[in-house]
Design a protein around this nucleic acid. Sequence first.
DNA 1: ATCGCACCAAGTGTCGACACATTGAACGTG
DNA 2: CACGTTCAATGTGTCGACACTTGGTGCGAT
Lengths: 252, 252
Amino acid sequence: MAAEVGDLADTGPALVASARAADLGQLREDMLFSALRGVDGSSSLALAIFRELAVGIVEGRLPPGHEVNSAELAREFNTSRTPVREALLMLEREDLVIVPPRRRPYVSEVALAQVREIYEIRACLYALVSELLIQRASDEQIATLHDWQAKLEADTQAGDVDAYFWHNVGFRNTEASLSGNRELQRRLSSLGLQMHRFRHLSLSLPGRLLNSLADHGRLVRAYADRDVAMAVAISRSLVWRGYQAIERSGLM
Amino acid sequence: MAAEVGDLADTGPALVASARAADLGQLREDMLFSALRGVDGSSSLALAIFRELAVGIVEGRLPPGHEVNSAELAREFNTSRTPVREALLMLEREDLVIVPPRRRPYVSEVALAQVREIYEIRACLYALVSELLIQRASDEQIATLHDWQAKLEADTQAGDVDAYFWHNVGFRNTEASLSGNRELQRRLSSLGLQMHRFRHLSLSLPGRLLNSLADHGRLVRAYADRDVAMAVAISRSLVWRGYQAIERSGLM
DNA sequence: ATCGCACCAAGTGTCGACACATTGAACGTG
DNA sequence: CACGTTCAATGTGTCGACACTTGGTGCGAT
């Protein structure tokens, strides 16, 4: 993946930009898909609807409070209400919509207090990831994290906030998978799905990228040194600063 | 609740025993119910079926691998297949059943490796609970934990393993709620639901009760002293020893 | 103008029906 | 007797229909 971007590096700025964009789109798709992986609906129709709606909510096209009733969606998707209902229940389980009994379902709102709760959990679980990763990952595997780190560095220099965000997600997913705990990986991606909803808040602050980048660098170094205490501390604070950025942005 | 048992303490052994049993049954119901709380199905029919099956699986009446197809269950419950299907999807979400596409659903198996993964997460999250609890709980709230601790002590002296187990669950739930993080509480009870499936393994070892009891005592003391480092360490090891007991039992 | 009540459109939970997939047994062939 | 094929039985995913609820609209009474 790194090779693809690198190979095109000398074909001119425009091509590089579009190649980059395509690459990012692919990455974005992969990351959202991996987050949606944990949800195995038996029906592929319901799953397609679920993914469509989930992406819509996460991207903000379906704003909080927006009504998503099964009848209208069924017409829209040219299916019966049964698969739509199933999809809505999946979305409810991911806390993306609320389905009150006998009432119309709507896209859930996210309060700052809830964001804080989620970040508390995330910080804790990523600390666990760091701990397990150091115990179990090989040097080669840790080196792959270094690759991601390099991308983050490039994005920071280019000032490309969006690219930074998605590469950051990639970094995180890789970390989680290297922890060797699949259950942990699943729970984290479920949390991640919710996080994507307010990501734009998290990276809007100036100076945040540089800060985050420095932390990533120190984290990878701690991994290479197999320094558990250090890695855990950095990992925890890395997540937590994400929350603080949202809090300080005052946008919630 | 403690009062009810206490008030009857001098009405003779038989009555005490039956009162205790009723009390335990109530507690068991409460705890399972609270674990099932997080799941809000919009349909109350589906929810009833879900709970019925969930309890059946957790209690072992529906063994791993047992087929749970929607057609048969629909006949059994005198409903159509629609609510049953919904219930099965909820169960899949809790990892209690597996619903392969176009194939009959069946009760999921639990491998030791998976149990380990879950315990790793639990240990981590309960450490977080301890940390938050010390930050946020009042002295009175911490005192309620002392009440639970007293029950555990009584159960140990009586050698009542079953009572010990459920009171332990109560202790844990109280801790989680005192953390003030509802999201955390929800995720933990979802994990707890799975755990109940192999609880009989965890408490079968002799000497385990005394060990666990001592840990609980130290934990409550650390809470009272607001000793975060100590509480976190105890909390983590408390959960972890539960896993070790299962591992050593060699029954998986 | 305001309140209360009947009424109606639209949505929800549930049902029975249908086409297709899967499974296991019967059966013939080597 | 082993083995692949055929065929019915059973289950799944999806559909359209039905009764009941809910939320809003308009109308009449105050």
